[in-house]
């Protein structure tokens, strides 16, 4: 569980404003493209000899998109931090897997476990990089519009809208309480600190819930009936779809080339 989620900098912290061709793509085409890319990565056979070459090809594709979008490699690396807990799980696999063993640096490791652990790491890393690119080139509100166009149930889109609108507000209250605690000399060291942190989280819930009631009343007084009006939606041409889907299609080509040549 370690050090929390580290999203302290807020929802907009992942977005890098820009006007590159990747930024300008319609959000729902980007969502479909990244999901399809992740699917292709996941479907790559684990135990094929050419799998490492395919992973390298996928990585090259992602770096190409990052270059077009003007996203620096350092930004992509920061996105990889979320992967850390599962790296340990992947490192454990060669030790606990069955099957023929091999000696690596004096450790007896399972060959199939090594392949599985390595491919899990590669696949997870590639898909985290793809999702980081999506988040870096798409504003959270644009992501919402994209999900709406992909026919996510309207109530779920509304809940998401409120969550994204107020996540930074609620997070800001949490941060102010933390500053207030720490400026009074509080340090969370022992279990006893729960006596302080529990009520802090509890009052955060009460404030969030009461804010929800106020927001709801304000919306009712402005004629809210349970639906949010949406503006006219732009027609997305086949060229825009083709540009977005070039990433997963190129990935499919890498996969096809691998299975033919390998």
């Amino acid at each position: 569980m370690g050090a929390g989620h580290g999203h302290g900098a807020g929802l907009a912290s992942m977005y890098v404003p820009g006007a590159s061709p990747v930024h300008r793509l319609e959000p729902h085409t980007k969502l479909v493209a990244v999901l399809a890319f992740a699917l292709v990565v996941v479907l790559t056979p684990v135990h094929a000899g050419w799998a490492p070459w395919a992973y390298a090809g996928f990585l090259a594709l992602l770096l190409g998109v990052a270059a077009v979008a003007g996203i620096r490699p350092g930004r992509l690396l920061r996105g990889l931090v979320v992967e850390v807990p599962f790296v340990f799980f992947a490192l454990l696999l060669p030790v606990v897997s069955r099957g023929p063993r091999t000696e690596v640096l004096g450790l007896s490791l399972s060959e199939s476990g090594l392949a599985a652990g390595g491919s899990i790491l590669a696949k997870a890393t590639l898909s985290v990089l793809a999702a980081t690119l999506l988040a870096a080139t798409t504003d959270p509100r644009a992501l919402l519009r994209g999900l709406d166009r992909l026919r996510l149930p309207a109530v779920l889109v509304q809940i998401l809208t409120f969550m994204i609108r107020y996540a930074d507000v609620v997070g800001g209250e949490l941060r102010r309480m933390k500053v207030a605690r720490e400026s009074r000399g509080f340090r969370a060291r022992r279990v006893g600190a729960l006596k302080v942190l529990g009520p802090a989280a509890g009052s955060l819930f009460i404030r969030s819930y009461e804010r929800g009631e106020r927001v709801h009343l304000a919306m009712l007084s402005r004629g809210y009936t349970g639906r949010l009006p949406t503006g006219p939606v732009a027609v997305v041409g086949s060229r825009s779809w083709a540009a977005a889907l070039s990433l997963p299609l190129a990935a499919v080509a890498v996969l096809g080339a691998g299975s033919l040549l390998g």
Partner: peptide, 29 residues
């Protein structure tokens, strides 16, 4: 009909509270 605003704010609370670190024991949190 309060589903969307209330659930949205509760989700924002869950999201925020997941960022909070609680000390458990022996320096772990």
């Amino acid at each position: 009909e309060r589903t969307a605003p209330m659930a949205g704010l509760t989700a924002a609370f869950v999201f925020a509270v997941q960022m909070m670190n609680f000390p458990i024991a022996y320096g772990t949190s």
